[in-house]
Amino acid sequence: MTETGSAENQAAQPVAPGTVSETPAKKKGPRGKVTVFGTWCKGCGICVAFCPTGVLSLDENGHPYVEFAEKCSACHWCDTHCPDLAIIVEPIE
C-alpha cells in the first residue's frame, strides 16, 4: 500500500508554476508555456475543466496551478476563455 502510494507521488510530481519541465513532450507539435496570475484569478475552474490536455489542476484553495507544464499544446483555450484575463500562454519552440 505504502509502496504504490510513493510510486504515484513520484509519477505525479508537480512542477513549479510557470516553469517548463525538462522531460520532452511525447508528441511533436506546438508547445506553450502557461502562466497563471494568482492575484487576478478568482478560481472559477473553467480552465481546469476544459483544458484538452490537462495541464492545469486546482489546489486545495480552489485556485488553478500549472501541474503538467510539458503537456501544453499551445491551443490557447485557457487564455482566450479566462474571464479574469489571468492566464497567458506563450508559444515556445
Binding site: 492575484t39 487576478w40 484569478c41 478568482k42 478560481g43 472559477c44 475552474g45 473553467i46 482566450t80 476563455h81 479566462c82 474571464p83 479574469d84 484575463l85 489571468a86
Partner: peptide, 12 residues
C-alpha cells in the same frame, strides 16, 4: 480582479 462573479462570461 474585476467586479464580476467568478467565471462570468462578460470577462470573456
Amino acid at each position: 480582479p474585476n467586479v464580476w462573479c467568478s467565471g462570468c462570461g462578460i470577462g470573456v
